[in-house]
Design a protein around this nucleic acid. Structure first.
Length: 579
RNA sequence: GGUCCUGUGGUGCAGUUUGGAGUGCACGCCGGCCUGUCAAGCCGGAGGUCGCGGGUUCAAAUCCCGUCAGGACCGCCA
C-alpha cells in the first residue's frame, strides 16, 4: 500500500473510510462542489487524484470552484440517513477545523463533469483543467498500467530494453518523414524515426537476442481517431526464433496488459489467414465482435442475365432487421459505395410478400431463391450486394459491414486476433513492379519460395502477421530475411538494383555481412491498445497532450513560426505560399 | 487531394427546413436568503461580433457564395 502522506497532508481525499473515523487528518485538494446552507453550515467536496470527500465547514469561508485548499479536521461517520452510497467515501465526512486557501482560481472554462461532452478544442486549450476530470485521471492511470505491464511482461521473457536515436537519417520508403534541419551542416536534415525498424535489426546482428523498447514513433501523415503524428509502440525483435515464438511473446505482453486493466486474462488469441479475413470480413483487420460476414455469391450468379452481376466476383452481406432502413439512407449508402470504388450497391429488402428491390425484376426466380438461401435471409433483413473485381468487392463490402454493424468500443468484449500469411506483395505498380505489402526485409513464406522462383509474385505469401483488436490494427511484424541470396532476389523483383539497395539500406546490408542471426519481430501501438482497454473511441483521450486532426496543439499553439535569425542559422528560407 | 457533419453568452443545447426585434431552456457566474446537503434549494441580476467575409432581400442566426476552425471517414499511413 503506497503511503501518500507528505509534509502538507496526511491522507488523500478519496481514501478515507469508516475505519478512519476519529482520526485527525490534513487533506489537500481542489474544491469540487459546494453546498452552502448559510453562515453556519457548508458542505464542500474536496477532490484530489484519488477522488472526493465531503468536508463539513462551520463558519463563513469564501471558497470557490477549483480553489486549492489545505484543510484539517476529524473524520467522522455521517449522521444516519445522510450517507451517500454513490461515493466511495460516502459513509464519512471531515469535520473541518482549519481551512487554508493555497491558491484561488478563476471559474473553470468548462464544467469538470464527465457527464457533459465539451468541445474538444476547448478541452485541449485548457488541458491542465481537463486532466483533473475523473475520466482523464482514469485514462492516464490505465495508460500507465498498460505501460508497466508491458515492460514487466517483456522483461519476464528476457527482453532487454535498448533505446535508439530520435535524430536519424531519412529512409526513402514508407510514410512521410518529419525532418529536423542540421545547424552544423546547413542543407542537410535529420529525420525523426517512423519506427526503430533498422536499429532493432542491427541489435540482432549485435547479439542482443531479445530487444524491446517502448518507442516514440513519428509519421507525417493525416491524423485520424486512431492516428497521431507521434505515437508509442512496443517495439520488439528476437533472434533464433520462428513466427510462432514471436506470436507467443507478444500474446503474453498484450494479455498481461489486458489483465492489468480489466483483471481478466484473455484466452489464447485465435489466428486467421489474411485471405480468410479478406474473404469473410473484407478487411485485413476484421472486427470479429459481430457477424454480418461477406457471403460468396459469384456461383449463384454465374450465368445471370443481369448485367450488373456479370462480374469476376459477387458477394453480399445480410443485415439482420435492416429492412426498415429508409430509401434515403440506402441512397446515401449506395453513393458512399461508389466513392469507395464500387460501381454501385444493390439492396434488397426481405419483406412478408417477397423481395423489395429495384433490381428484383432483372433476376430469375432460381437466382432469387439461391440468393435467399445462401445468405440465410429472413423476413425483415436487408441484403446488400456488390459485384466487381474481387479486391473491390471485399473492400467495399467490408466498409459497408462496419458502417452498419460496428458496435461501440465498450460493447462486445475484447477480441484479439492474429492475422497471418499476408501476401508478400499487395499488387503491381504502374510500371509493373510489385508493391511490397510490408517492408522489403520480410521473409517470404517457405512454402511459396517456388512461386517466387517462378515469378508468380502475387501468389507468394510472407511471414508477416498483424495483431488486431476489435477491428483496430494494433500492430504488425514479420520474420526478416537474414540470407543474402533471398534478399537479393527480393530486391531484384522489386526492381531495386544492387547500387540502389546499397544507397538506401547499405548500413543494414553491410551489417548482415558480419553474421546475421535469423530473427523476427513485432511492433504494436500502445495508444490504440490503451484506448480500447480504457473504453475510448479515440486515442486522443488516452494521450495527455494530443494534437487536433490538422496537427495543431491548441494548448501551445504548435506549430509556430520561428525567428528569421533562427532560420538563417539553419540555412533555411521560407518560400512564399504557392497556389 | 476528396466526401460528410458541426460552429448561437463561460459550458451544453433549442431556434435554421418555412427569413420578420438576440427569442428560449439547462448548467455555470455575480448578489441575497437558507443548519444535513451531495448535479442542494429559493429569489434577483449580469453576460451575445449567432465562427469570419461577401451576396440576395424592405428585412438574414435562418437563403446563396467564399473562408476559417473542429470532428468522422476515403486517399495516405512500406
Amino acid at each position: 500500500m503506497t503511503d501518500y502522506s507528505t509534509s502538507l497532508r496526511t491522507d488523500r481525499c478519496g481514501d478515507l473510510r469508516v475505519g478512519d473515523v476519529g482520526r485527525q487528518v490534513t487533506l489537500c485538494g481542489w474544491v469540487d462542489r459546494r453546498r452552502e446552507h448559510g453562515e453556519h453550515l457548508a458542505f464542500v467536496d474536496l477532490r484530489d487524484r484519488s477522488g472526493v470527500v465531503q468536508l463539513v465547514i462551520d463558519g463563513a469561508h469564501d471558497l470557490r470552484s477549483e480553489y486549492v485548499l489545505q484543510v484539517t479536521g476529524t473524520v467522522r461517520e455521517r449522521p444516519a440517513d445522510t450517507a451517500n452510497d454513490g461515493l466511495a467515501t460516502g459513509a464519512v465526512e471531515v469535520d473541518t477545523t482549519d481551512v487554508t486557501v493555497l491558491s484561488t482560481a478563476e471559474p473553470p472554462p468548462f464544467p469538470l463533469d464527465d457527464r457533459i461532452d465539451v468541445d474538444e478544442v476547448v478541452r485541449l486549450r485548457h488541458r491542465y483543467v481537463d486532466l483533473r476530470r475523473p475520466r482523464m485521471q482514469r485514462n492516464l492511470e490505465v495508460r500507465a498500467r498498460v505501460n508497466s505491464a508491458i515492460r514487466q511482461a517483456m522483461e519476464e521473457q528476457g527482453f532487454v530494453e535498448v533505446e535508439t536515436p530520435m535524430l536519424i537519417a531519412s529512409t526513402p520508403e514508407g510514410a512521410r518523414d518529419f525532418v529536423v534541419p542540421s545547424r552544423k551542416e546547413p542543407g542537410s536534415f535529420y529525420a525523426l524515426p517512423q519506427s526503430p525498424q533498422i536499429f532493432k535489426q542491427l541489435c540482432m546482428v549485435g547479439g542482443v537476442d531479445r530487444y524491446y523498447q517502448i518507442a516514440r514513433c513519428l509519421r507525417d501523415e493525416d491524423l485520424r481517431a486512431d492516428r497521431q503524428f507521434e505515437f508509442m509502440q512496443l517495439d520488439a525483435e528476437a533472434s533464433f526464433v520462428s513466427q510462432d515464438d514471436v506470436l507467443a511473446f507478444i500474446s503474453h505482453a498484450v494479455s498481461s496488459a489486458t489483465e492489468a486493466v480489466t483483471g481478466e486474462r484473455p484466452g489464447e488469441i485465435p489466428r486467421m489467414s489474411w485471405d480468410e479475413a479478406m474473404e469473410r470480413f473484407g478487411s485485413d483487420k476484421p472486427d470479429i465482435r459481430f457477424g454480418m460476414e461477406l457471403v460468396e455469391l459469384t456461383e449463384v450468379f454465374a450465368d445471370t442475365g443481369f448485367r450488373a452481376f456479370q462480374a469476376p466476383c459477387v458477394k453480399g452481406i445480410r443485415v439482420p432487421g435492416g429492412a426498415d432502413l429508409s430509401r434515403n439512407r440506402l441512397d446515401d449508402l449506395t453513393e458512399q459505395c461508389k466513392q469507395w470504388g464500387a460501381k454501385g450497391l444493390v439492396w434488397m429488402k426481405v419483406e412478408d410478400d417477397g423481395i423489395n428491390s429495384p433490381v428484383a425484376k432483372f433476376l430469375s426466380d432460381e437466382e432469387m431463391g439461391a440468393l435467399r438461401s445462401t445468405l440465410e435471409a429472413e423476413i425483415g433483413d436487408l441484403l446488400l450486394i456488390v459485384a466487381d473485381e474481387r479486391h473491390t468487392v471485399r473492400h467495399v463490402l467490408g466498409l459497408v459491414r462496419l458502417e452498419l454493424g460496428r458496435p461501440p468500443v465498450t460493447e462486445g468484449g475484447l477480441h484479439f486476433l492474429w492475422v497471418v500469411d499476408f501476401p508478400l506483395f499487395e499488387g503491381l505498380d504502374d510500371t509493373g513492379n510489385p508493391i511490397p505489402a510490408h517492408h522489403p526485409f520480410t521473409m517470404p513464406h517457405e512454402e511459396d519460395l517456388d512461386a517466387l522462383e517462378r515469378g508468380d509474385l502475387l501468389d507468394v505469401r510472407s511471414r508477416a502477421y498483424d495483431l488486431v483488436l476489435n477491428g483496430w490494427e494494433l500492430g504488425s511484424g514479420s520474420v526478416r530475411i537474414h540470407r543474402r541470396e533471398i534478399q537479393e532476389q527480393i530486391f531484384a523483383v522489386l526492381g531495386i538494383g544492387a547500387e540502389e539497395a546499397q544507397t538506401k539500406f547499405g548500413f543494414l546490408l553491410d551489417a548482415f555481412r558480419y553474421g546475421a542471426p535469423p530473427h523476427a519481430g513485432f511492433a504494436f501501438g500502445m495508444d490504440r491498445l490503451t484506448a480500447i482497454l480504457a473504453g475510448e473511441e479515440n486515442i486522443r483521450e488516452v494521450i495527455a497532450y494530443p494534437k487536433t486532426q490538422s496537427g495543431a496543439d491548441p494548448l501551445t499553439n504548435a506549430p509556430a513560426r520561428i525567428d528569421e535569425h533562427h532560420l538563417t542559422e539553419l540555412g533555411l528560407r521560407i518560400l512564399p505560399p504557392t497556389d
